Computed example of a mutant assay.
Amino acid sequence: MRIFFGLETDSDTRRALADWRDRYGIAAGRAVPAANFHITLAFIGEVDNRRLDTLCRAVDALEPGPHGGAGKILLDQVGYWPKPGIYWAGPSQPAPELAALARKLQHVGGMVGARLEKRPFAPHVTLYRGCTEPPPAPAVLPAITLAYAHFTLFESQLGRQGASYQALEHWQLEP
């Protein structure tokens, strides 16, 4: 199975992001279904059941304090990465607590063979994939708050309609 750690978006946040995208964030690409909106913390990749169990036990063993607590971020900017063709929404302000959590989870992922990410952590929600050209600047920037109280281990499942993400496990963050 192909897995990653991420922050889920609640239904209000998904609806607000989809509404903003459909009104102001038009791009020449495939719109990501709102059900797939999330912020990836650490991509792990392909694992078997044995390595999945090892990974979950290692996350269970993390001390509550080192990976920060519950919080929120303001998704108030958009960006475009040309090589993967991704148009995204994310925070303009750094999110050091999420970056610390992402590093911890990536380190734990490395224990089961995940490739360590060399790029700095850039929290974002992918709005479009397969963009063939840079999207025009939106008339109105998003201003959507994403609150989080836990992080999730997701399985990415490929189907006829593209990828869908199934939550496998959740870990609460301290208030």
Rank of each mutant, 00 (worst) to 15 (best):
residue 117 E to M: 07
residue 136 P to K: 06
residue 140 V to M: 11
residue 113 G to I: 11
residue 114 A to R: 02
residue 105 L to E: 12
residue 154 F to N: 03
residue 139 A to E: 14
residue 98 L to A: 14
residue 102 A to V: 05
residue 153 L to A: 13
residue 97 E to L: 00
residue 101 L to S: 07
residue 147 A to R: 14
residue 97 E to G: 00
residue 152 T to I: 08
residue 100 A to L: 09
residue 102 A to K: 02
residue 96 P to Q: 13
residue 133 E to N: 15
residue 128 Y to C: 01
residue 155 E to N: 09
residue 111 M to E: 14
residue 103 R to G: 14
residue 106 Q to E: 14
residue 132 T to S: 15
residue 131 C to V: 07
residue 138 P to M: 11
residue 147 A to F: 06
residue 140 V to S: 09
residue 116 L to G: 04
residue 146 L to Y: 00
residue 142 P to I: 02
residue 135 P to W: 10
residue 145 T to R: 14
residue 131 C to Y: 02
residue 99 A to E: 14
residue 123 P to C: 04
residue 110 G to S: 04
residue 138 P to F: 12
residue 138 P to D: 10
residue 134 P to G: 09
residue 102 A to R: 02
residue 124 H to C: 03
residue 119 R to T: 09
residue 155 E to Y: 10
residue 152 T to K: 06
residue 152 T to E: 01
residue 134 P to Y: 08
residue 99 A to Q: 08
residue 96 P to L: 10
residue 124 H to P: 01
residue 115 R to L: 15
residue 101 L to K: 07
residue 99 A to T: 08
residue 105 L to C: 13
residue 102 A to T: 04
residue 103 R to D: 15
residue 99 A to H: 07
residue 147 A to M: 07
residue 109 G to Q: 14
residue 130 G to P: 01
residue 137 A to P: 04
residue 129 R to V: 03
residue 154 F to W: 09
residue 108 V to Y: 05
residue 116 L to Q: 11
residue 134 P to F: 11
residue 119 R to Y: 04
residue 139 A to D: 13
residue 154 F to Y: 15
residue 112 V to S: 09
residue 130 G to R: 13
residue 121 F to I: 03
residue 128 Y to H: 15
residue 139 A to I: 07
residue 126 T to Y: 01
residue 143 A to Q: 11
residue 150 H to N: 12
residue 115 R to S: 13
residue 143 A to E: 06
residue 106 Q to F: 03
residue 109 G to T: 14
residue 117 E to Y: 06
residue 129 R to E: 02
residue 114 A to S: 15
residue 155 E to G: 08
residue 118 K to F: 00
residue 123 P to E: 11
residue 125 V to W: 00
residue 104 K to I: 06
residue 141 L to R: 02
residue 103 R to A: 15
residue 133 E to C: 14
residue 104 K to W: 11
residue 125 V to I: 10
residue 132 T to P: 04
residue 103 R to W: 12
residue 145 T to K: 06
residue 104 K to N: 11
residue 109 G to H: 12
residue 128 Y to V: 01
residue 153 L to E: 07
residue 101 L to N: 05
residue 119 R to K: 14
residue 98 L to Y: 13
residue 106 Q to H: 08
residue 112 V to M: 09
residue 108 V to L: 11
residue 110 G to T: 06
residue 139 A to H: 08
residue 138 P to S: 13
residue 130 G to T: 04
residue 117 E to P: 07
residue 111 M to W: 13
residue 126 T to D: 04
residue 128 Y to N: 07
residue 149 A to R: 15
residue 121 F to L: 04
residue 133 E to R: 15
residue 147 A to D: 10
residue 121 F to V: 02
residue 126 T to E: 03
residue 142 P to T: 08
residue 155 E to K: 12
residue 103 R to E: 15
residue 139 A to F: 10
residue 151 F to G: 01
residue 136 P to Y: 07
residue 104 K to Y: 07
residue 123 P to I: 05
residue 132 T to D: 15
residue 143 A to S: 13
residue 136 P to D: 05
residue 141 L to A: 03
residue 119 R to F: 02
residue 97 E to V: 00
residue 111 M to F: 09
residue 128 Y to D: 05
residue 147 A to W: 06
residue 144 I to T: 09
residue 139 A to G: 08
residue 151 F to T: 01
residue 135 P to I: 13
residue 120 P to G: 03
residue 113 G to V: 14
residue 140 V to A: 08
residue 128 Y to E: 01
residue 143 A to T: 05
residue 114 A to D: 06
residue 97 E to N: 01
residue 143 A to C: 08
residue 121 F to S: 03
residue 126 T to F: 00
residue 145 T to A: 10
residue 107 H to K: 13
residue 145 T to C: 03
residue 123 P to M: 10
residue 100 A to Y: 03
